[in-house]
Simulated assay, not measured.
Amino acid sequence: MGGVMICEPSVLYNMLNQYTNVSKLADINYLYLIDSRYKLDYNTGHIITAKNAQRDSKGMFVVPENVEVESMRHIVVYDSDTSSLKDLGEAVRCAEVLAKVSLYPVLVVRGGYQKFSALYPFFRSVKIMYTIMELDNFEPYPVEIVVGLLYMADHNQARSPKMCEDLKISGMLNVSSTALDCETANHPILDVCLADSVTADLFSSLKRICVFIGSHVKKGSPVMVTSTHGISRCSAATIAFLMHHFKYSLEDAWKYLKKCKSNMRPNRGFVQQLSDWELHTTGQRSTDISEPNF
């Protein structure tokens, strides 16, 4: 069985915001999010799409009969404020029951509902039931790359005044073929005009990109990186920043970003230029970009 692991609130936030053409929440086997608090607390407010944990007549947690737990790719449990697996709080006890039948690790959210809702108050809800259509139409937020500081988005998300306000965006980097039309934006936008082509020259703009993102991150001001679909160009720019700012290798930056956004995919031309950037920032090419992962 998968066992039980602790996870940061940002991990759950990014799980909730994965999508391809539609939100991954519409996939019934993607995420089972459980609120292990008592029903009164759950009804007062919970994380969006969460289900209240099932208990028997003695108040003990049980595996729900109406959910195929063993086939769930992600099972995440939270309570009020559990911060460690050693706490043996409601979330840990619930997770241990589910872990007996799950093929994957069951995650417990560090800090529980209190911490998650403090970081992402716009994801609090009292809604209990969701139709497939509602989940299909769920609008994912930009994924979080550096907690509270760096986000990655497509153009629809970048143009959303509500999302930018909720995330307190103070600056935006747009890497696309045209300037970003964002009339309601009250933050500076740096447009780096670049086609999503294997022949496009990204490398010559990487220093300017990293300086722009870094200037916001160092000030503690949230910044968003965006491209048309939020998959290739903004992923390449974000990877370059992670390599520059945190001194990551290309491989480490790639794996880090993949955990944040599962369908990120810089085109092959950008991958080669990121390899050149690795040499520039670290003095060596430590990543073999001929491997299938790249």
Rank of each mutant, 00 (worst) to 15 (best):
A237Y: 05
T228P: 02
S249E: 01
Q273D: 04
S215Q: 13
N267F: 10
D252F: 14
G214T: 05
S249L: 04
A237H: 11
H244R: 05
F212G: 10
L279I: 13
D276P: 01
R233G: 10
C210Y: 08
V211Q: 13
H216L: 12
S235A: 14
L206Q: 07
F246C: 15
Y248R: 12
H245Q: 12
S215P: 03
M264Y: 02
W277S: 11
T228W: 09
N267E: 02
E278M: 03
R208K: 15
S227R: 14
V271R: 02
A240T: 02
N267I: 01
R233K: 13
V225I: 14
H229P: 00
K218D: 12
E278V: 10
E278R: 08
F241Y: 15
L242H: 04
D201T: 01
S249T: 15
S221V: 02
L274N: 01
G230I: 02
D201V: 00
V223T: 08
V198N: 05
S221L: 14
E278F: 04
F241T: 05
K261C: 07
D276M: 11
I213V: 14
R268A: 08
S205M: 02
K219R: 15
H229K: 10
L206I: 11
K219A: 14
S232R: 09
N263R: 05
K258M: 07
S197Q: 05
V198K: 07
K259F: 03
A237T: 06
D252R: 12
R268W: 00
A200V: 00
W254S: 08
G230H: 07
G230Y: 07
W277M: 09
I209H: 06
C234K: 05
S205A: 14
K261W: 09
W277C: 06
M264T: 02
I209L: 05
H216V: 00
D201E: 11
S197A: 08
N267Q: 04
A253F: 02
A200M: 00
V271C: 12
H229E: 12
K255I: 13
K207Q: 13
K259P: 06
V217E: 07
T281C: 15
Q273T: 03
V211I: 15
L206T: 09
L257H: 06
R233V: 02
V225N: 10
K219H: 10
V271P: 05
G214H: 03
E251W: 00
L202N: 01
F203L: 14
D276Q: 15
S227Y: 12
F270V: 03
A237S: 15
V225Y: 07
C210G: 04
G220A: 06
Q273C: 04
A237D: 09
Q272P: 00
N267S: 08
K258A: 13
D276R: 09
H245N: 11
I231W: 09
G214L: 06
K255M: 14
E278H: 00
H216E: 11
S249G: 00
H280K: 11
F241W: 15
G269I: 00
V223S: 02
G220P: 06
V198L: 02
C210L: 08
M243L: 01
S227D: 14
C234H: 07
